[in-house]
Design a protein around this nucleic acid. Structure first.
Length: 138
DNA sequence: GCCAACGTTGGC
DNA sequence: GCCAACGTTGGC
């Protein structure tokens, strides 16, 4: 199983909205960056991803499961290369992990979130995942 | 193919 | 609201 982190501004799409979608989940649409798209295409059914609130909050608030692998983004023009995956909310993070906490943790100095701060879909290593879960009270 | 201009993201 | 990082566009 692989691990990921997906960013959304809560004004545009929040964790609460994701939770409201229940087990059917929702397509993660709007990715318009090729590096992020490649990550979406690497995702397998059953993979897990952190839901990160960018801009407002700046913290990891929940865990998603990938329930359908990539397919064309219905919000993009026909024939465009953009894809989505279907994700469902798995569980909230009891103690949201803030960007400040991530920056303060030496073991996380190489995390993609800090290195490629503008990338909206990024990989998380198993070690990083384990540590972030611990920091989140899971 | 280079690079300046410009738009967007996201932290502060 | 500002600004750094970075991707994209378009002129040459």
């Amino acid at each position: 199983m692989a691990y990921w982190l997906m960013k959304s501004e809560p004004d545009a799409w929040s964790w609460d909205q994701q939770v409201a979608k229940g087990a059917k989940g929702e397509a993660w649409n709007g990715v318009r960056n090729h590096t992020a798209k490649l990550n979406l295409m690497k995702m397998k059914k059953g993979d897990r991803a952190f839901f990160y609130h960018s801009n407002i909050g700046k913290e990891i608030v929940g865990v998603l499961e990938i329930i359908r692998e990539h397919f064309p983004d219905p919000t993009a023009d026909a024939g465009s290369p953009w894809v989505v995956v279907q994700v469902k909310a798995l569980e909230p993070v009891p103690k949201p992990v803030t960007l400040a906490a991530i920056k303060a943790e030496p073991k996380l100095k190489d995390i993609a979130l800090l290195k490629y701060s503008r990338l909206s879909v990024q990989p998380v290593t198993p070690d990083e995942w384990k540590l972030l879960c611990k920091m989140g009270g899971m």
